[in-house]
């Protein structure tokens, strides 16, 4: 589904990703762990097509397409979803309107008709339950006045509504208490199936108690330095990232 090969990315002439490679197949959950400043969020932003990053080398293939040739909104329409580390507040645009536009723009890109309103509302109610959103949420402005936990849950809710092929969760667990984390993880687990894939970027091992990854990658200084299974996460929790300092 996703093939990243030898990716080099710079911002303001400073190289952040230095030969990053990763392959993700349908049905898989990949966890990417690593200390601050190793380029984890850069990876998420580059995949989603945020401006300001210069790709100096390497390729990204998504679902058979050259991802780097697509605009940000086209990547989303192709089924790539980024759960933001810091979700943006949008005053004056309700969650319902925002998601309706999002779903219908994605449908339009596939030549489909807009979703009938009753179907949309029904889906919205179902998915809200999944992340335990309060009823008034529908009419509130996107993320405006939301607590940190609510914003993260909203990201998972949007993901559930859009049902992407590949979802990148950028430190969705940071700043969450244990209950909120369980809600987020529960959302991911319910959505996970043999047709989609997840990349979970995280700082801590604890989220991986709830979301069981197939692979754990250690990211350090702009590339993957070690890959293992779930036990690698536990090992990191215990020993920290010290051993990788040597690699640098």
């Amino acid at each position: 589904m996703l093939k990243i090969n030898n990716l080099h990315v710079s911002i303001d002439n400073k190289e952040i990703l230095k030969g990053f490679s990763l392959e993700v197949n349908k049905g898989e959950i990949h966890a990417i762990m690593g200390p601050n400043g190793t380029g984890k969020s850069t990876l998420g932003n580059v995949l989603a097509g945020k401006e300001g990053y210069v790709i100096t080398e390497g390729t990204i293939e998504f679902d058979g397409k050259n991802l780097l040739e697509l605009e940000a909104h086209e990547r989303a329409q192709a089924g790539l979803f980024l759960a933001f580390q810091y979700p943006i507040e949008i005053p004056g645009v309700s969650n319902a309107n925002f998601l309706k536009a999002s779903i219908n723009e994605i449908r339009k890109s596939k030549g489909e008709e807009p979703m009938p309103p009753n179907e949309f509302l029904k889906m919205m109610r179902e998915k809200m339950e999944l992340v335990e959103m309060k009823k008034d949420f529908i009419s509130r402005a996107v993320n405006q006045g939301f607590s940190g936990g609510e914003k993260k849950r909203n990201e998972i809710f949007q993901m559930a509504m859009l049902n992407p092929k590949l979802a990148v969760l950028d430190e969705t667990d940071s700043g969450l208490d244990i209950d909120a984390m369980r809600i987020v993880a529960n959302g991911v687990n319910k959505l996970h199936n043999s047709e989609n894939a997840f990349i979970v970027i995280t700082h801590y091992q604890r989220l991986l108690d709830y979301i069981i990854p197939d692979f754990v990658h250690v990211m350090y200084d702009g590339r993957i330095v070690k890959t293992g299974d779930k036990s690698l996460a536990l090992e990191l929790e215990e020993k920290g990232y010290e051993e990788f300092e040597l690699i640098k």
């Binding site: 605009e71 933001f84 309107n97 998601l99 536009a101 723009e105 402005a141 949007q158």
Partner: peptide, 27 residues
């Protein structure tokens, strides 16, 4: 840019995003 990127990441192009923000602002 951050706000527009958020819209785009949800499949909504820049022009539609601006229209939605402005309409929301004036509602």
């Amino acid at each position: 840019e951050d706000m527009l990127f958020y819209f785009q990441q949800r499949g909504i192009d820049e022009e539609t995003a601006v229209a939605m923000i402005v309409n929301g602002f004036c509602k």
